[in-house]
Design a protein around this nucleic acid. Structure first.
Lengths: 194, 194
DNA sequence: CGAGGCCTTGACCGCGGTCAATGCCCGTGG
DNA sequence: CCACGGGCATTGACCGCGGTCAAGGCCTCG
């Protein structure tokens, strides 16, 4: 079970995005399940409909899907990052994507149904959720621009400056498909930069 | 000025996404400005901060930006489609993107500030807006997947089946950059399919 | 110490880019 | 009405980025 203030760091982040009253915070806490996953463990499987909103509490995770038999990584999440498979959560369709722990991780899991049920009572909670979604959307738009008109090398350099934590902590094979290239090409790009 | 029920078709679409009470509808109407743009006319210029939510009432429009001196099309909007430059509207930063009419078009323009001010009073209006944003987000995710791991030809074929209206109505030079390729390559792809 | 996963490197090739010439369509003015 | 000009699409020649296939080195872990 949750200890009294175990979730405080996460709630502090929420408050920076959308100030939450004491009441809202107390209503949200019981929905937060802290779950532990070992490195490489599956947090959600391909084919499940997304009915849970996750936050990385400690560790790291990724969203990936299968394309012609090999894995394509779509998103990396670190501490306090939101993880949703929007194309399933917002449509109700089963997701083709899986969520996997990349390190031993603690993850906060919130039932989306229970969360959404609180929205009428606590508009600020709805606002928080929507602001988080908006941030994800803006991030996705940036990635789209990069994929649309940068070379593989430019995309790698941009990742180096914008998200050095990814380069440091994540195996190259996952980074390659995230950048839209093969492991082999990424390896060549890296060696050409030295 | 707006005639009595001129906006009805658009509001009908809204109601399918999120049912709106008579009161909400009446509160929203005064915010809706119907504006006319000629083909090729600029609806919003590059550099402006996005403070307006647009809907295409009739006609067509696109969002584009400049990359190394030439235009990259990011989005096409047709009847009843939402147009926002999310990366500016949600961050408050000036947008590097422009909105342009592709045909003689009627566009519904809503001040985002005025709209957001109604949200506390009319939660259903906020829900409608957020559902529209969620749809845009899901669309963007799909485009990202396509760009990440389909060939140019596969992306073109997908556009043919998913959005034939784009192929029919939009000049190829705009479609090319939307697909992440050059006009020349698109031309070759098209000829190879016959 | 062996097995397997991850990264690197080499050889080769094809998709899509650039540059440039040509054709086509359409609006404008003589 | 035709002549001209400009924008859009097509086509050809050429090239380089990034893909595939395969071999080899290096860790980690059993």
């Amino acid at each position: 079970m949750l200890q009294a203030d175990q979730l405080k760091p996460l709630f502090d982040v929420f408050n920076l995005i959308q100030p939450l009253s004491f009441q809202v915070t107390e209503a949200l806490k019981p929905l937060c399940q802290l779950r532990y996953f070992k490195k490489h463990e599956e947090i959600q499987a391909i084919g499940a409909t997304c009915k849970t909103v996750y936050f990385v509490f400690s560790g790291a995770a990724r969203i990936f899907y299968l394309k012609d038999g090999h894995e394509v990584t779509e998103y990396f999440a670190f501490e306090n990052d939101l993880i949703i498979r929007a194309e399933s959560l917002f449509t109700g369709n089963p997701s083709k994507k899986a969520i996997q722990a990349l390190e031993n991780s603690n993850v906060v899991a919130i039932s989306s149904e229970a969360l959404f049920r609180l929205f009428d009572q606590y508009p600020d909670l709805e606002k928080l959720f929507n602001k988080l979604v908006q941030r994800s959307y803006v991030e996705t738009l940036k990635r789209l621009e990069n994929l649309q008109f940068l070379t593989a090398e430019e995309r790698y350099r941009k990742l180096l400056t914008d998200h050095p934590e990814i380069i440091q902590k994540i195996p190259l094979k996952y980074i390659a498909s995230y950048l839209g290239i093969t492991q082999v090409s990424l390896s060549r790009i890296r060696s050409s930069l030295r």
